[in-house]
Amino acid sequence: MLAAAAAGLLLLGISLAFYWVPDAPIEGFRQRIFYIHVPIALTAYACFFWAAWKALRLLWTRDQRYDLESYTAVHMGVIFGILTLVTGSIWARTSWGVWWTWSERQLVLFLVLFLFYSAYFMLRFSVDPGPRRANMSAVYALFGVVLIPVSFLAIRLADELIHPVVFTRDVNSNLVGSQLLTFGICFAGMLALAASLYTNELTGKRLDERLSELREALS
């Protein structure tokens, strides 16, 4: 159901982005990367928030099932993080003429956020499975979520505004109706895709765990 919704919404959103939305005044045709890049970035943030929420639930209730849920959400967040970096890099190449620039704080902060969550896996797999590993992973996922508002606000607070800013109070720089609708559909589709992948991945990981328990019981 989620997968079908994701496919339908994304197909509709991409079709609208290519055939309905007008060209942006300055960026022109290349602004269409926005409809995939920004929803992916926001979905990555949403996954990291979800991971932190599950981590908090684990630390609050000591229920070990939240450990796997938090881990799966970080896994999804990192996949969407990679896509954010790749699509952003392509957009940078066509807009600024470079694949990457270290002078932009928002790019570097997103990279730091991505590397922080990539290191989560190193921490997790360096500790034996059990409550200790679950607690350490949960605390790490909670720390990471602090970086998200910093990364998000950096786009608005940066001195050098090469990175485009949308959804501001300035009416002239905001999106027009068709752009906003297309963005909303793409964002909903991306969230549905993430939810669908999360559910499937979680089912697979739970199945893996139960099979290991069964193997131990039978051997």
């Binding site: 045709f29 290349r30 269409r32 995939i36 992916i40 896509l83 392509i90 190449r93 895709l193």
Partner: peptide, 22 residues
């Protein structure tokens, strides 16, 4: 196909490729 069109198409195709790889 202009340069901008190529880059936009590449961005969308990369996302599709990653989802398919997954």
């Amino acid at each position: 196909m202009t340069s901008a069109e190529k880059y936009v198409t590449a961005a969308y195709l990369v996302v599709l490729a990653v989802v398919l790889a997954y």
